[in-house]
Nucleic acid binder design. Structure first.
Lengths: 201, 201
DNA sequence: TCGGGGGCATGACATCTGTCATCACGTTCC
DNA sequence: GGAACGTGATGACAGATGTCATGCCCCCGA
């Protein structure tokens, strides 16, 4: 019997997934959590075999949770399910020691299969997401460029970005100009959107 | 027995919801759809009592589907479930004749209850979403301003917006300037983000 | 029928942004 | 030691953008 921890902030989805997994004879949902922090705390208490974590949760990111679990509970395999599969998340997740990564568009069969796969030491990444991640390539942005571009995401004017980054406006413009060049965008706002879509920020 | 049509592009969620609803004695999921178009077509064929539609789907918006169903199948009550409950969606949905509107954070019990409520002619809107919608207020944007602002969402330069809207660049700037004033933003990008957050576009 | 409001456009002006050249400093690696 | 690179800054310039005034047309409600 594989003991599963299920974490998803959407009550409906969480309950539904639990109902679905309960249909499998060899799977058992032993605990549920609605937030990242709760997931970590619960995992410590129940020590599940597999943790199925939603990527987006109110407090802690799914990847952060995975990271914590990987160090604290090495016997527990973590897998991530997500609605919006951005390439950057996949990369971060794998780096955090996640063993399975799938979008919520897969069928219940696949989910159950992957649970078994990661429990037996295997890995599984959704082929479509893997292809996307590979085609997106590595980030050409320097750390500082990424920082500044991230601050530009909300559409703030350069002066505010400069204040928030504790840089001179001129320097901010330089970084942004460089980032715009690297993303082939026509302005920083578009560049920020593209960089985010590719998982670079 | 209440006959239900379930539409959600995420296979996992759809299957899970179906499993969950199947646990209720008086509910029966008679059809499922993965896209908006499919939902409409399927609804025509099976004529369900209640349609449970996800708001975001690849092709047709959940609200659009609801609109179609309301005119074509007046006996079928439509309700919408969604992950990201933006106020604007709720308003549009109610205008489209939707009878129930809830976020996926509710429990399965609530979902089943609401299905019964809308089937018996009632209405149900998640209290939290309703409060948000009221506090967001009505959109101060003219239809044209909203159009242009929507095109500005992706960060495109004004010339491209003008081309896509078949307007002169000067006119686009006027609309955007007006919209920026109404949203108290410092530029069109921020204005677009704010308008979206408030459900105005 | 008249006024007001929205849609659409133009022109003028000030400011913001994007781009480029150039400099200085520190780290890393050969 | 020097090359390569990232970080941080300044100044100059062109083009994009935001703002405002003004005008025209059309439709709707008083």
């Amino acid at each position: 019997m594989i003991r599963i921890l299920l974490a998803d902030d959407e009550h409906l989805i969480r309950g539904a997934l639990a109902a679905l997994l309960a249909l499998e004879d060899d799977l058992e949902v032993v605990a549920q959590a609605a937030t990242g922090a709760e997931a970590v705390a619960t995992a410590r208490a129940v020590r599940p075999d597999v943790a199925v974590i939603d990527l987006q949760m109110p407090d802690l990111d799914g990847v952060t949770v995975a990271q914590t679990l990987a160090t604290e509970l090495p016997t527990c395999s973590t897998m991530i399910v997500t609605s919006h599969g951005r390439p950057g998340h996949l990369k971060r997740a794998l780096a955090a020691g996640v063993r399975g990564f799938l979008p919520k568009t897969v069928s219940a069969d696949v989910l159950a299969t992957v649970v078994r796969t990661v429990h037996s030491g295997g890995r599984y990444v959704d082929p479509a997401l893997a292809a996307e991640a590979i085609s997106a390539g590595d980030s050409p942005l320097t750390p500082r460029e990424a920082d500044v571009l991230e601050l530009a995401l909300e559409g703030a004017p350069i002066d505010e970005i400069a204040r928030r980054a504790s840089l001179s406006p001129g320097t901010v413009r330089n970084y942004l100009s460089s980032a715009v060049g690297k993303t082939a965008a026509s302005n920083r706002h578009e560049a920020a959107r593209m960089a985010r879509a590719r998982g670079w920020i």
